[in-house]
């Protein structure tokens, strides 16, 4: 199966990914959800990592059980992050990872800037916990589960939800 390592190397070609393909995410990704998107878009906060080549995972994990680096950590609904997302792709972000369909403006941004949207399996927090090797809070600790976690993952399964040509796996979006 195709593996995609974050942060992306200079030679990685996202345009070869096709909607509907299952791939494995490897390397380092960063969690962020509602509060961080609101704060950064209002200029009241900054992203603690370079957008270029990186992936944002829409996730607010549960506390880790003993012996685990992170708790249940499935994706949250991507649609709520839609209004904030095009400008992140414009800033060089390579991928977002979440669940469910995206808005037309996000799909347009993917086409324009050559990014991808990766669809994680909704509700599968225990499965994803088993793919996490390390996790640490790198910003917004006071937001609790909404803090930004730097997460190192191994064989983290996702579908290519919307590819860089704007093709999507979702039925009934834009309604």
């Amino acid at each position: 199966m195709r593996r995609l390592v974050f942060p992306l190397s200079e030679t990685e070609d996202l345009s070869s990914l096709e909607a509907g393909q299952e791939i494995l995410v490897e390397g380092v990704i960063y969690t962020a959800r509602d509060s961080v998107h609101q704060l950064t878009s209002r200029g009241e906060g900054e992203w603690p990592f370079e957008l270029k080549g990186n992936a944002i995972y829409y996730c607010g994990p549960t506390p880790a059980l003993p012996g685990f680096p992170l708790g249940s950590c499935g994706p949250t609904t991507s649609a709520r992050m839609d209004p904030y997302t095009p400008e992140l792709y414009a800033g060089g972000l390579a991928a977002t990872i979440g669940k469910g369909p995206r808005s037309r403006s996000v799909v347009d941004a993917l086409r324009e800037f050559g990014g991808v949207y990766l669809a994680a399996y909704g509700g599968c927090g225990a499965l994803y916990a088993s793919c996490v090797r390390e996790a640490e809070v790198v910003a917004y600790r006071h937001l609790g589960p909404q803090a930004i976690f730097r997460v190192r993952v191994e064989s983290f399964p996702v579908l290519v939800g919307v590819d860089s040509e704007g093709r999507s796996i979702f039925k009934g979006e834009f309604k």
């Binding site: 708790g71 399996y121 509700g123 927090g125 225990a126 916990a129 088993s130 399964p157």
Partner: peptide, 18 residues
């Protein structure tokens, strides 16, 4: 994948969904 997740939660005690 959902069925794998149900199994993972049962065997590890990690919540099914975050």
């Amino acid at each position: 994948r959902i069925l794998e997740n149900i199994e993972a939660a049962e065997s590890s005690g990690v919540p099914l969904c975050q």
